[in-house]
């Protein structure tokens, strides 16, 4: 087990895709110290920025202690092992990850779990914009895995989702599940406008308030909905089908109790 502690406060963005259990495996502390990272436009080594300590335990996990919201691409492409971050972490955390687990006891920046295929990301704070969404322009979103967020998430979460589960305990921003084609998103509290825009399939469950786009149509009222094997949410829920502008068959489950203004839809049932 390796522990990283920042030696000082970081002022400029740091690109550190090398902080993954795969990269650290079978490396001594001295070797890990020499791994290259960039700080702004300068090439430095990991040892220049972090105090690196090795614990006796053999497990392939990495612990980062401290404020790291400028540090980007931690856990990029990881396939196994565990990263525990006690503090905030920057953008692209767990991008393209294909296995393992990342636990963040703090907030994350944008594009957390972007294009991930497998694995688990647990965020015990807030997650930034574009969580689980591909980088700009790309239409290949998250394919599998699980992201759980205890706090709120920003805008454009779960864009182009092609599989996997996103669970949010707090609120969500605009364009939740934009263009999604599979998978499920569960937001326990409120959701900003345009949830599910251009979705073609998949499931969005909102426990709080939301706005429904005019391109969605009412389908039914359901007493409960299953998000994944562990989570079944008690309703009742209005079920909306859409996005019809893309001939979509996606479903938005909107809480009946928290959205009384949707009552007028009932006459179309």
């Amino acid at each position: 087990m390796i522990t990283l502690t920042p030696l000082r406060a970081f002022n400029v963005p740091i690109q550190a895709p090398c902080i993954t259990p795969d990269e650290f495996a079978n490396k001594s502390v001295a070797e890990v110290t020499k791994l290259p990272v960039t700080e702004g436009n300068r090439h430095v080594t990991l040892g220049d920025l972090f105090k690196i300590e090795q614990n006796a335990s053999e497990s392939s996990s990495i612990t980062i202690n401290g404020e790291c919201s400028k540090v980007k691409r931690v856990g990029q492409g990881m396939t196994s092992g565990e990263i525990i971050i006690n503090g905030n972490i920057g953008m692209h955390t767990g991008e393209k990850m294909a296995g393992g687990k990342i636990v963040v006891n703090g907030n994350t920046g944008g594009w957390t779990g972007s294009e991930m295929k497998k694995g688990i990301i647990e965020i015990h704070g807030d997650a930034g914009d574009y969580t689980a969404s591909p980088y700009r322009g790309n239409d290949l979103g998250m394919k599998g895995g699980l992201i759980t967020v205890e706090g709120n998430v920003g805008t454009d979460v779960g864009c182009y989702l092609q599989g996997g589960i996103i669970k949010v305990k707090g609120n969500a921003g605009r364009f939740l599940g934009f263009h999604m084609s599979e998978g499920a998103i569960y937001v326990e509290k409120d959701c900003d406008v345009r949830a599910g825009a251009l979705m073609t399939a998949g499931k969005i469950v909102i426990g709080g308030k939301l706005e429904i786009l005019p391109s969605f149509t009412i389908d039914s009222i359901k007493a409960k909905v299953k998000v994944d094997a562990e989570t079944t949410v008690q309703g009742p829920f209005y079920v909306f089908l859409g996005d019809l502008s893309e001939k979509g068959k996606g479903k938005i489950f909107a809480s009946k109790t928290n959205n009384p203004e949707f009552k007028f839809y009932e006459k179309y049932l």
Partner: peptide, 8 residues
């Protein structure tokens, strides 16, 4: 212009 993903 419409394909940033093509460049990165």
């Amino acid at each position: 212009m419409i394909r940033p993903e093509d460049h990165y």
